[in-house]
Simulated scan of single mutants.
Amino acid sequence: MKILINSKYEYLRPFVEQLTRPIFFARHGETLHSGRNIVKLFETDGMRLAVKSYERLTLCNRMLYGSLRKSKAMRAYLYADRLRRLGIDTPEEVAVVEIRRGG
């Protein structure tokens, strides 16, 4: 498991660590979108946070992301800063959690 938290939001670490438990994500938060991926709205420490959970990848994509490419979650985290530097308004990145099972 890999957890990367924006230093500005380090105080949210306990909340982010709770998100690593699938039962917590399933039982809490308000579902904003449920399709291929799930987006939920959580409120913690006076902040409203949108949290996205990506669907499980196909076997081929799991091998590709496991060895050659950054995960979709990590790319979304890294690209948010890049978009803002280009003048594109996008939400600030708070954290990314990667949970890998069996590679």
Rank of each mutant, 00 (worst) to 15 (best):
A26N: 10
K70H: 13
K40I: 03
R84N: 04
L78W: 09
G35Q: 03
L4P: 03
G66N: 10
R21Q: 09
L49S: 01
M74A: 10
H33R: 11
T58F: 05
L64M: 11
P91V: 06
R48K: 14
A76D: 06
I88R: 09
R82T: 14
V96H: 03
R100H: 14
Y54L: 07
T44S: 09
K52W: 01
S71G: 10
A76Q: 11
A26C: 03
A50D: 01
G35P: 02
I23G: 08
K40W: 03
Y65H: 09
R62Q: 13
E55M: 06
V97T: 10
A76E: 13
L4N: 08
S7F: 01
S67T: 14
T31E: 04
I3C: 05
L41M: 03
H33C: 03
S53D: 07
V39R: 00
L19W: 04
T20M: 07
A50W: 00
E10F: 08
S7Q: 14
V39E: 00
K52P: 02
R84P: 01
K70G: 08
R69G: 03
R13W: 09
L32E: 00
G102I: 08
N61R: 15
R75N: 06
E10S: 15
M74Y: 12
E93D: 15
N61L: 14
R56F: 08
Q18N: 15
I88E: 05
